[in-house]
Simulated scan of single mutants.
Amino acid sequence: MPKLTFEATLMEKFIEILANKEEITQRALDILLVKIKDALQSRDQFTIALAGGSTPKPLYEALAQQALPWDKIHVFWGDERYVRSDHPDSNQRMARQAWLDQVNFPPTHLHPMPTAANDPKVDAETYNRELEQFFHLNAGEFPVFDVVLLGMGDDAHTASLFPHTEALTVQDRLITVGNKDGQPRITFTVPLINHARCVMFLVTGANKQEPLAQVFASEADAIAYPSRLIQPVGELWWLLDAAAGANLT
């Protein structure tokens, strides 16, 4: 299937429809390798925030096959389920198994979200401070990640920013507590994501057609469709498979 590319009014927004998950993985890998090269040339360091779920796993497995300067790459997570790091649902566990434990990453370059305090607000504050210290932020400043990877659920949530939840309205923090059917999550806030140099959505499946229609509509309720809130100052990439993007024109 030929690749379809749409460019929005700003040149920094790109929507690509690819045949399947395999093509999304390859395209995402190609983009990431360019971003890593550019960041290392400009700043001698690359920062990335990972997404959870099944869609990015093949990308992580592909990254594990690359010969990259791991000592110049710092890995963070955009959200985390409030479970132990060895729990089957842990985003950290998935990324470690698929990629991070397969290469020679310096342990200090991996920055997982803490989940051991038995209080998600405490752990969210701990991660907030870690980001402030790592990026040497002053009060009121937001870090600028080189790349933030995101997925999107069939309710148009992204990271752990779910429809009609308080987390969507947090503007003065880097990290907050999300809520999924009464279960806490730790998540990047909308403004933190939107300060990134590059945000990349990986979206698959026919069940994403209706939420994508609302996300891309000229008018819709962003509180009901949270992925609409993601409008970064840098590049915004949507990589969709043919099933997800079937109704886009």
Results as ranks from 00 to 15, higher is better:
174 L>S: 04
174 L>I: 04
174 L>P: 10
175 I>A: 04
175 I>H: 08
175 I>V: 15
176 T>V: 01
176 T>C: 14
176 T>M: 02
176 T>Q: 05
176 T>K: 03
176 T>N: 03
177 V>W: 08
178 G>N: 03
178 G>M: 04
178 G>S: 00
179 N>M: 11
179 N>I: 02
179 N>V: 09
180 K>H: 13
181 D>S: 13
181 D>E: 15
182 G>C: 10
182 G>V: 12
183 Q>A: 13
184 P>D: 01
184 P>S: 01
185 R>P: 11
186 I>K: 05
186 I>V: 11
187 T>K: 04
187 T>D: 11
187 T>G: 05
187 T>F: 09
188 F>D: 02
189 T>C: 02
189 T>F: 07
189 T>G: 03
189 T>E: 09
189 T>K: 02
190 V>G: 10
190 V>R: 05
191 P>N: 11
191 P>R: 02
191 P>Q: 06
191 P>T: 04
192 L>E: 01
192 L>I: 02
192 L>Y: 05
192 L>S: 08
193 I>P: 03
193 I>K: 10
193 I>A: 08
193 I>Q: 06
193 I>Y: 13
194 N>K: 12
194 N>C: 11
194 N>Q: 11
194 N>E: 10
195 H>V: 02
195 H>N: 15
195 H>C: 10
196 A>L: 11
197 R>H: 14
197 R>Q: 15
198 C>K: 02
199 V>R: 08
199 V>E: 10
200 M>V: 07
201 F>Q: 10
201 F>E: 12
201 F>C: 07
202 L>P: 12
202 L>Q: 15
203 V>E: 07
203 V>N: 04
203 V>H: 06
205 G>K: 04
205 G>L: 00
206 A>T: 06
206 A>G: 05
206 A>C: 00
206 A>R: 13
206 A>M: 01
207 N>V: 00
207 N>I: 00
207 N>K: 14
208 K>A: 00
209 Q>F: 01
210 E>I: 11
210 E>M: 12
211 P>F: 05
213 A>H: 13
213 A>Q: 15
213 A>S: 15
214 Q>S: 13
214 Q>M: 14
215 V>P: 12
216 F>N: 07
216 F>K: 03
216 F>R: 08
217 A>W: 13
217 A>Y: 13
217 A>V: 09
217 A>H: 12
217 A>T: 09
218 S>A: 12
218 S>M: 05
219 E>N: 13
219 E>Q: 15
219 E>R: 14
219 E>K: 15
220 A>N: 14
220 A>H: 11
220 A>F: 12
222 A>E: 15
222 A>L: 03
222 A>P: 13
222 A>R: 08
223 I>M: 14
223 I>P: 00
224 A>N: 02
224 A>Q: 14
224 A>V: 04
225 Y>G: 02
225 Y>V: 00
226 P>H: 06
226 P>Y: 08
226 P>A: 05
226 P>C: 05
226 P>S: 04
226 P>R: 08
227 S>V: 00
227 S>K: 02
227 S>Q: 03
228 R>T: 10
229 L>K: 15
229 L>S: 10
229 L>F: 10
229 L>A: 10
230 I>P: 11
230 I>Y: 13
